[in-house]
Design a protein around this nucleic acid. Structure first.
Length: 1132
DNA sequence: ACACCATGGCTTTTT
DNA sequence: GCCATGGTGT
């Protein structure tokens, strides 16, 4: 059957749409227009999705219809001659904003799916990627190619059609942020794209001029934001009514896609070029004469669709494509009536006339396209009839649309109007044959569909290897050959590049063998980064694999394994550590000790002690607060000893032990030490300002006085003093290695002068003097006219909103605050994308608020959080279980067995069992074994029963999984405990996936897991705004940085009961670190009121910022600059 | 064993 | 202002 379809519409849940855009009104208005198949639009929105599932029911072939009772009610509002069946199809539009090939891309894409299940699957996947709840047309920081991939994975029948491909702001081929061809955007998946939406401002003949579009079906949809706009463009089909048939027709295999109903492109909003605000419009040729500059305001013109088409066209005007289908240009009846009556399209006159017409004659499409001439003659509306005739003959004139302004129809001149109104029935047969265009029978099948060009040159994207030119400092660091080298490198001075270049040079010149190099970092992230860069620079991973790159803890674990054997060490993570401490305190309490301190207090002290290489029997005075020493040190020593005994009993080490024990061994075993010193003849230590005593000693022991030790860091970026790091070791190393060469890297390649000068004001005079004359400032050559911005807001929330607005301006509009996408971007930079922007703050609390505000505005952002993946219930459970199987379980692990066995062990039994075992100095594995051999009378009947069941359970698992590799073991565990559902659990899946490479080495797996919990902290590649604490931002860089909460009390941070002012310099450095993350632009924002601990406090600008402000003002006065370098942003 | 209230403490955080 | 902890009471 023949029918009209409009796939691209929206719901009331999209921004800037009509309130009455619900399924009922869509159903009614589709009939008034004469549309049979309607896209649902917006199905990723939870509200609309609920409506869809409630009100739509399955119809034939993957289509849906409004449920019977609602439909019958609605039909009362549909004039009988208009009534028809209406089918819905699951379609949604996604706004993709992302960076690709160094340019920000913004395009909109239609996604089609055949059934509710696959739609739900897609919703779930997109939900994880971005915020789909705040708008019917969600903005995702997702590459369109990857969206397509997801759609294809979701359903075999799913497909994607790029939307309104020519509009300047948000489209595939758009002039502002588009590509030049389809393959650039969809790469290897391009052949899955078979149709393109031409959009209101272009029609098929314009598209025919671009030969690369020949193979695509050109569809047209309304993109309706209100029911009245339905079908202003639409598609004609002759297929049976089903999802599959429509897809096939579009794919072109069959002839069911007849063609399209079009707007006159001149009526579209972006047909010509111009400036709406300036009231200036021009044709492409004229635009070029003007150099694309607006003669009114001298800014670049908004280039329209016609311009862009001519840019990409490889064929002349009026070229007719061989595969062309039928198309017909129509003017919405409302617009015709508006022109006829010389009143606005939304006026009562027009609405009433419209109603009368469709009640009498039928649907709008019937009136516009099909009413026979004879009937038109008898029309009571001569001007309307003439207008329709003119339209059908294409005898229409326009003031064409430009820069978001719709074009205006001009059907009659004054003469014509008078004449027609005078003579009511003018219609002789003036030889008006139905124009060829109106004959629907004209079908031109697309016989020729070129083979997909999947060979898009991938190589073009491979980054060309850059040839670096080193500055004198860097060169000195590279040229240094023997002995200790200390590199002091300010922010953005090419620290990593220098260190990796040095390593590369050492290997390539054959001076050092790769396997004798040891590179130590603090974080896994840094280690990975270094490894990746080296792999690039060393042309392959074979050499890199021989290098020893790792974190302090990782390297020490490896060394301890050498000594203790691989399977006798298990790392006690945070939770386990706490349980052991609880056990220790319990034991002491039951012996009559009383404490006024929490577990955390003791753990903290012990951790500090270990960092100072102090054991339980050493004098702990130095790690205690002054005044506490005598009173507490005895207790602490006792707790420390007990805690340590419990760790030892169970072969557990905590994080600090890894380094502490390694250092102790190195001290004791001089043969081993010498062996290692020879082995690692070349040692690199990164981020040296963050080192603590034990780590320093570790390096001292590995690297003798004249060793090839290279340390690199920046004392001014030392921000981890609160966890034991001490920047003084940077000074100490110079004394301890008197022959060391010191190199300063002071040229910053990252930030502009403005940013760097400002940041210097913060630390000026407070720099840590490594030696006389050091503390030279980092400088930059990058001039800019970009100001530093200091801005205030009335509240923390409005501060967040202001940041959001500011970002939107920078990005050049996201389509949200602009109605439709009309008024965006005069001030837009255009080249920025979300991933180039970071918002930094001091506390997570601020971060959460900012995230909430940005997300509800639909701006994609990621709040970096180090929530421990392993403490999620499923993961924790399996880790506990694996520990038990590996014979390394702690008693605490038993609490995780609750829902794994049919006979869980009770609290009392566990306690009794634990106490008994501790008494007998048995760890879990040993205790279980002892009990297996000879049951003990100490326990009562119930306890004995529970313990037997436990032993039985553990043994049976052990037996059944013997010889299994880890993944097999995991599946077996899920299976045998009756938790098959876990196979679908994503945490379980991730665990299984990570376990994959460990064969049967459970302990190795668990230890790595404990040392590498960097799973989803922050994704640098994600197309999202980064929300980071100032600490977490260290080592990263962004084009634009906002530092929020620049207030007294927050920066520097004032703890509510913090008495010591000792950390103020660290706070200063932290702010310095934060500021120097910015490359191009830096915003410092603060709030005049802020709620802290429930109290509303008056804010005052941070003293650090005041310093900057003062300097900038002074600088302005001195140089007499007119240019404001420091400006107040007016936020609202 | 659980429900209830009161109190206190609030940051940054790799491994 | 909110959450977690701990103590008391049923």
């Amino acid at each position: 059957m023949e029918f009209v379809a409009d796939f691209h519409i929206h719901s009331k849940y999209s921004r800037a749409t009509a309130k009455n855009l619900d399924l009922e009104n869509l159903y009614i208005n589709a009939q008034l227009k004469g549309i049979t198949v309607l896209g649902t639009g917006d199905f990723t929105h939870p509200g609309w999705w609920r409506q869809i599932r409630q009100k739509l029911v399955r119809a034939e072939g993957g289509l849906f219809k409004l449920n019977e009772s609602i439909a019958r009610q609605c039909d009362q509002n549909v004039p009988p001659p208009c009534r028809r069946d209406v089918r819905f199809m699951l379609v949604t539009e996604i706004s993709n904003i992302y960076k690709k090939a160094d340019k920000t891309r913004k395009n909109h894409n239609l996604v089609f799916l055949p059934d509710l299940d696959s739609a739900q699957t897609l919703i779930n996947r997109l939900d994880k990627i971005g915020n789909i709840r705040s708008d019917g047309r969600p903005i995702l920081g997702l590459d369109a190619r990857n969206l397509l991939e997801i759609v294809l994975e979701t359903s075999d029948e799913g497909y994607l059609i790029p939307a309104h491909i020519w509009t300047p702001w948000f489209s595939l081929l758009g002039s502002k942020s588009g590509f030049d061809c389809i393959e650039e955007c969809f790469e290897d998946l391009s052949h899955h794209i078979f149709a393109l939406e031409t959009g209101l401002s272009s029609d098929p003949p314009m598209n025919w001029r671009v030969s690369s579009l020949d193979r695509f079906a050109l569809v047209s949809n309304s993109d309706a934001h209100s029911p009245a706009k339905l079908g202003r463009e639409a598609n004609l089909f002759d297929t049976n009514l089903s999802y599959g048939a429509i897809k096939k027709a579009l794919e072109g295999g069959e002839e069911g896609f007849l063609g399209t109903i079009e707007f006159f492109p001149e009526e579209g909003k972006y047909h010509l070029d111009g400036h709406r605000k300036c009231g200036f419009r021009s044709m492409p040729a004229h635009t070029n004469e003007l150099d694309k500059i607006c003669p009114v305001c001298a800014k670049p013109l908004t280039l329209g669709v016609l311009y862009r088409v001519e840019q990409l066209a490889d064929r002349p005007e009026n070229y007719r494509c061989e595969s062309a289908r039928f198309h017909q240009n129509l003017i919405p009846l409302e617009d015709i009536l508006s022109e006829v009556y010389q009143v606005g399209p939304k006026t009562k006159t027009v609405t009433q006339a419209y109603q009368r017409l469709i009640q009498r004659y039928g649907s709008e499409f019937y009136i516009l396209r099909d009413i026979p001439l004879e009937d038109l003659k008898k029309f009571n509306y001569p001007l309307v009839a003439e207008a329709i005739l003119k339209m059908r003959k294409n005898d229409v004139h326009f003031d064409a649309g430009y820069d978001g302004e719709f074009g205006k129809v001009r059907l009659f001149n004054a003469d014509e109007r008078d004449r027609l109104q005078g003579q009511c029935c003018l219609f002789e047969t003036t030889g008006e044959k139905k124009t060829a265009q109106v004959k629907k029978t004209q079908k031109i099948a697309s016989k020729f569909i070129p083979k997909p060009t999947s060979q898009f040159p991938q190589s073009a994207k491979k980054p060309v290897k850059k040839i670096f030119i080193f500055n004198s400092g860097q060169q000195a660091a590279l040229d240094h050959c023997q002995g200790p080298l200390i590199i002091i490198a300010g922010p953005g001075t090419g620290k990593t590049r220098t260190i990796t270049s040095r390593i590369t040079a050492l290997i390539k010149t054959g001076k050092v063998k790769a396997d004798r190099i040891l590179a130590i970092t603090f974080t896994n992230q840094a280690a990975n980064e270094m490894r990746n860069r080296l792999t690039d620079m060393l042309d392959g991973s074979t050499v890199t694999a021989q290098l020893h790159i790792g974190t302090f803890h990782g390297i020490c674990l490896g060394l301890l394994k050498q000594v203790h054997g691989a399977d006798s060490l298990s790392i006690a993570d945070e939770t386990l550590k706490k349980s052991i401490m609880a056990d220790a305190l319990y034991q002491l309490k039951s012996k009559g000790h009383r404490f006024d301190f929490s577990d955390d207090f003791f753990l903290q002290i012990i951790s500090k002690a270990k960092q100072q290489l102090l054991g339980p029997t050493d004098d702990l005075g130095s790690v205690l607060e002054t005044g506490q020493q005598d009173a507490v040190s005895q207790t602490v020593a006792k707790v420390y000893q007990t805690y340590q005994d419990l760790l030892n009993l169970q072969n557990l080490v905590d994080f600090e032990d890894l380094i502490y024990q390694t250092v102790c061994l190195l001290k004791k075993d001089s043969a081993w030490r010498r062996k290692l010193q020879e082995r690692f003849s070349c040692i690199f230590a990164d981020e040296f300002q963050d080192i603590n005593y034990s780590q320093y000693q570790f390096i001292r022991l590995l690297a003798p006085e004249k060793a090839n030790l290279c340390v690199i860091g920046d004392p001014d970026q030392a921000i981890y003093g609160f966890r034991g790091s001490d920047v003084r070791y940077f000074t100490k190393i110079i004394d301890d290695y008197p022959e060391s060469r010191i190199v300063f890297l002071s040229q910053n390649y990252r930030s502009t002068k403005t940013i760097l000068n400002s940041s210097f004001q913060v630390i000026k005079g407070r720099q840590i003097q490594i030696r006389q004359g050091s503390g030279a400032r980092t400088y930059s050559n990058r001039s800019t006219d970009q100001c530093l911005t200091i801005a205030d807001a009335p509240s923390a929330r409005s501060e967040a909103v202001a940041i959001g607005c500011s970002i939107e301006k920078l990005i050049g509009g996201t389509g949200f605050h602009a109605v439709d996408f009309g008024k965006v971007g005069d001030s837009g930079e255009g080249s920025l994308s979300f991933m180039d922007i970071a918002i930094l703050f001091r506390t997570m609390e601020q971060g959460r608020l900012i995230r909430d505000v940005l997300e509800s505005a639909g701006l994609p952002c990621q709040l970096a959080s180090r929530q421990d993946w392993r403490s999620r219930p499923t993961v924790a459970k399996f880790i506990a279980l694996l520990r038990i199987i590996a014979g390394q379980g702690a008693f605490w692990d038993l609490t995780h067995l609750q829902d794994l066995t049919s006979a869980p062990i009770g609290k009392n039994t566990l306690l009794a069992f634990k106490n008994w075992s501790y008494e007998k100095k048995l760890n879990l594995a040993a205790a279980l074994q002892t009990l297996t051999k000879n049951p003990v009378p100490e326990f009562n009947k119930v306890q004995r029963f529970e313990l037997e069941a436990l032993i039985c359970f553990v043994n049976s698992i052990k037996q059944k999984t013997a010889g299994f590799n880890l993944s097999q073991t995991l599946s077996h565990l899920a299976d045998m405990t009756g938790h098959q559902s876990w196979f679908k659990n994503e945490n379980f899946q991730e665990l299984a996936q990570r376990a994959g490479s460990y064969e049967d080495n459970i302990l190795g797996f668990l230890n790595d897991l404990a040392l590498k919990k960097d799973t989803d902290f922050y994704h640098p590649g994600a197309q999202k705004i980064a929300l980071l604490t100032m600490h977490a931002a260290k080592g990263l860089e962004f084009e634009v940085v906002y530092i929020a909460g620049c207030e007294q009390g927050l920066i520097p941070f004032k703890h509510h009961r913090d008495n010591g002012a000792g950390s103020i310099d660290e706070e200063r450095r932290l702010f310095y670190v934060a500021m120097t993350r910015a490359k191009e632009q830096l915003f410092l924002t603060w709030s005049r009121k802020r709620v802290i601990y429930g109290k509303i406090l008056d804010g005052e600008l941070s003293p650090f910022v005041k310093k900057i402000e003062k300097d900038l003002i002074q600088h302005m006065n001195q140089t007499g600059q007119k240019k404001r370098r420091c400006e107040q942003l007016s936020l609202f």
